[in-house]
Design a protein around this nucleic acid. Sequence first.
DNA 1: CCGGAATTTCAATGATCGTTGAACTTATGT
DNA 2: ACATAAGTTCAACGATCATTGAAATTCCGG
Lengths: 118, 118
Amino acid sequence: MKTVFHPDIDDIAAADVFAALADPIRLGILVALADVPEVDKARCNSFSELASASLLSYHFAKLREAGITRSRVEGTSRYLSIRREDLDRRFPGLLDSVLETARRDPNLPRLSGPLTVS
Amino acid sequence: MKTVFHPDIDDIAAADVFAALADPIRLGILVALADVPEVDKARCNSFSELASASLLSYHFAKLREAGITRSRVEGTSRYLSIRREDLDRRFPGLLDSVLETARRDPNLPRLSGPLTVS
DNA sequence: CCGGAATTTCAATGATCGTTGAACTTATGT
DNA sequence: ACATAAGTTCAACGATCATTGAAATTCCGG
């Protein structure tokens, strides 16, 4: 039963968050994640349109290490979600305006359909 | 009468803005700038507590090229300001929540006094 | 015209970044 | 037990980054 490291949200500096957001693929992952109605149900594989498996894995790690996402291991799959409560407490209002900003960017990579869930 | 290049705000991608924000010194510059009551009056030199002149020049360029700041040349001095209207139109709400986020970060480099102005 | 001030530019350094493809790990289904 | 699927890890690459210090630029005041 492998477990994954998630940093304490209070150890995250503002600049770390922005660094994690400074990539179109990661912003694409983030908006796709935000649009999933059921929390904690987005399989990594669902993002395969955005990049190769190994590159996705790299970007997932960046988001996770910046305290932005959570990764739950279940069998051979991993399920991603946004650490919404933590982010809202530590950086109130930031996540929403980042999502709004990202959604507005016409050049962000986007998933063709809704995320396959569960 | 030297003039300085400022990108069209519509040519700026979300990821570019976040990249420019991904550095503590630049965030420090930004909050200091935001706290100046009179717009367009902050001389570059006023930030000398934050870094060496040459490093500041580098960071100023990053902010300017990301569409975040404006630089007005007057004699041997340059005066910086935030492109607030442009940013608010292109990325509504983002600047304010970025400033709020940055101000909340206890580890950001800060100016000891208010900016010398005019 | 000369000296100094404000700022940028340049070259160099080491660190980190995004990307690729191949190898590895771990769990699942038969 | 074996093949397969889902992810991660690793080594390599060129690109960009932050930082330094020295040199160049541009203007201003005497």
